[in-house]
């Protein structure tokens, strides 16, 4: 481009170095999308529960396979991650954490909390 000197650029993703805060923002949207798809599973599960023990056994059996467990694991992490980044966005909305350090530290807090809560939920599931 001939006029690329010192003019501000439009926010094309390709011109920026990939930063953790960008990845977190992208993952918030991707997990939100995935959780929306997951609502099909929630609907199916509730319908199966209402349909009776025979049909409920079918979906419980599917969720009990390793693919089912993997999907549920991804679902659990997505929920806790999306919930954490969602709370972080609510904090941003009130003007909090909007410094460079605040963005980095709140980001790591969310990641650690999401991993921690996912592990706690699965420990509860395995004990129960």
């Amino acid at each position: 481009m001939s006029n690329s000197s010192s003019r501000p650029l439009s926010p094309f993703l390709s011109v920026y170095k990939l930063e953790p805060s960008m990845i977190m923002s992208g993952l918030h949207r991707i997990t939100g999308f995935a959780l929306t798809i997951g609502l099909v599973l929630l609907t199916w599960w509730l319908v199966a529960a209402a349909a009776g023990p025979d049909y409920f056994a079918v979906i419980q059996g599917l969720l009990g396979t390793w693919i089912g467990k993997l999907a549920l694991f991804g679902w659990t992490f997505s929920i806790f991650y999306h919930l954490g980044t969602g709370l972080r966005h609510l904090a941003f909305d009130t003007g909090r954490c909007l410094t460079k350090d605040g963005i980095v530290s709140s980001g790591w807090t969310v990641v650690v909390a999401a991993v921690g809560l996912t592990i706690v939920a699965w420990i509860i599931a395995f004990i129960a």
Partner: peptide, 12 residues
């Protein structure tokens, strides 16, 4: 989530 987790493996 925590209710469902504690119901994991429960019968109908």
């Amino acid at each position: 989530i925590f209710s469902i987790a504690s119901l994991a493996g429960a019968d109908y």
